[in-house]
Measured scan of single mutants.
Amino acid sequence: NQASVVANQLIPINTALTLVMMRSEVVTPVGIPAEDIPRLVSMQVNRAVPLGTTLMPDMVRGYA
């Protein structure tokens, strides 16, 4: 089972991601792999991401 990136807090739209906003968790469906967390830092979300939501590739500008 692969860990995915999950929002550690509410992340408002257009917010640049920081390490404290994300955690890794084994979830279904699988989202962005946890090993990509360092790559996600400073990328912006293109929608509001509620606490506990799995980050999907289409939620992060420039990721996919």
Rank of each mutant, 00 (worst) to 15 (best):
I37Q: 04
I11Y: 00
Q2S: 08
A3N: 06
G52T: 03
G62D: 14
Y63Q: 05
V41Y: 04
V30P: 11
P57H: 06
M56Q: 11
P38S: 11
P38H: 12
T18R: 08
L55G: 01
V20F: 11
P38M: 11
V30H: 14
G62P: 05
S4V: 02
E25M: 04
Q2V: 12
M43W: 09
L40K: 00
S24E: 12
P50E: 15
S42T: 12
A64T: 15
R61L: 12
S24C: 05
A7W: 02
A7L: 03
V5W: 01
Q9H: 12
V5K: 01
R61Q: 08
A48H: 14
L10T: 13
M59G: 03
N46F: 05
P33R: 06
S42H: 10
M59P: 00
V5H: 01
L10G: 13
L55N: 01
L40N: 00
T28I: 07
Q2A: 13
I13T: 12
L51I: 10
P38Y: 06
P29K: 05
L55I: 14
N14S: 09
N8P: 02
D58R: 04
V6G: 01
V5F: 01
L55P: 01
V45K: 00
T53F: 10
P50H: 09
T54I: 10
Q9L: 15
A3H: 11
A48E: 13
R23I: 10
M59R: 03
L17D: 02
D58W: 06
N46E: 15
I37S: 04
V5Q: 01
L51S: 14
V60S: 01
V49T: 08
L10W: 08
N1H: 06
N14Q: 07
L19A: 11
G52C: 07
A34E: 14
V27I: 12
N1T: 15
N8L: 05
L40A: 00
M21C: 03
T54S: 06
P38Q: 11
V26Q: 14
Q2F: 10
T18M: 06
I32R: 00
V45R: 00
A16G: 07
P29Q: 10
Y63I: 08
S42L: 13
M59W: 07
S42M: 12
I13A: 12
M56F: 09
V49F: 02
A16H: 14
T18L: 06
N1P: 15
T28R: 03
S4W: 02
D36P: 00
Y63L: 14
A7I: 07
N8W: 04
E35P: 07
M56E: 08
I13V: 11
V27E: 02
Y63S: 05
D58H: 08
V26H: 08
G62N: 05
M56K: 05
D36F: 07
V20Y: 13
P57M: 07
A7Y: 00
P12M: 14
T53S: 15
R61K: 13
P29C: 15
M22H: 00
N46R: 09
N1Q: 13
I37L: 13
V5Y: 01
V26I: 14
S24Q: 11
Q2G: 15
E25L: 03
A64V: 10
R23Y: 05
I13S: 14
P38C: 04
T15A: 11
M21R: 03
L17A: 00
A34H: 10
N14Y: 08
S42G: 15
M21P: 02
P12C: 05
D58Q: 07
E35I: 08
N8Y: 04
L19N: 07
Q44Y: 11
T53Q: 10
V5D: 01
S42Y: 08
A7F: 01
V30N: 06
R47H: 12
Y63F: 09
N8K: 10
R23T: 09
S4Y: 04
A3V: 09
A3E: 15
L55H: 00
V49W: 02
A3R: 04
L17N: 00
N8M: 11
E25K: 04
G52Q: 04
R47I: 10
V41D: 03
L51V: 12
N8V: 08
A16V: 13
A3D: 12
M22I: 13
V26W: 06
A34W: 08
R47L: 12
Y63D: 04
G31L: 02
N46S: 11
V41A: 07
G62Y: 07
V60W: 02
R61D: 10
V20T: 14
A3F: 09
L40W: 02
P33F: 08
L19K: 10
V30I: 10
R39E: 05
Q9P: 02
